Simulated assay, not measured.
Amino acid sequence: MERHEIEAFLTLAEELHFRRTSERLGLAQGRVSQTIKKLERRIGVPLFERTSRHVALTPTGQRLRDDLAPAYQQIQEAVARAIATGKAVTGTLRVGFSSQWAGDAVIEAADVFGQRYPDSAVRIQEVQLTDPFGPLRSGELDLQLTELPVAEPDLVAGPVVFSEPRALMVHARHPFARRESVCLEDLARTPLVAVSGDVPQYWLDHHYPRRTPEGRPIAHSATAAYWQEVQSLVATGRGASPAALRAARYYARPGIVFVPIHDAPPIEYSLIWPVNGGTARVRAFVETVCELTPPPVYTD
Rank of each mutant, 00 (worst) to 15 (best):
A13F: 01
E15H: 05
G30I: 14
R31E: 12
L39H: 05
L47T: 00
E49K: 05
L57K: 00
D67Q: 10
A69Q: 11
Q73Y: 04
Q74V: 09
Q76A: 13
A78Q: 14
T85Q: 15
G86S: 05
V89T: 04
G91H: 10
D104N: 10
A105R: 11
I107N: 08
E108A: 11
E126A: 14
L129C: 06
T130K: 15
T130C: 11
G134L: 14
P135S: 06
L136R: 03
L136H: 02
G139H: 04
D142K: 01
L145P: 00
L145K: 05
P149A: 06
V150S: 10
P153L: 05
A167H: 02
A167D: 03
A172P: 01
V182K: 03
P191M: 03
G197W: 01
G197Q: 05
G197E: 09
Q201S: 15
W203E: 09
L204A: 08
H207M: 08
Y208I: 09
T223W: 09
A225P: 08
Y226M: 12
E229A: 12
T236D: 10
G237H: 03
R238L: 13
S241Q: 07
P242N: 08
A244Q: 05
A252Q: 15
E268P: 04
S270P: 09
S270C: 12
R281A: 15
T288V: 14
T293N: 11
T293Q: 13
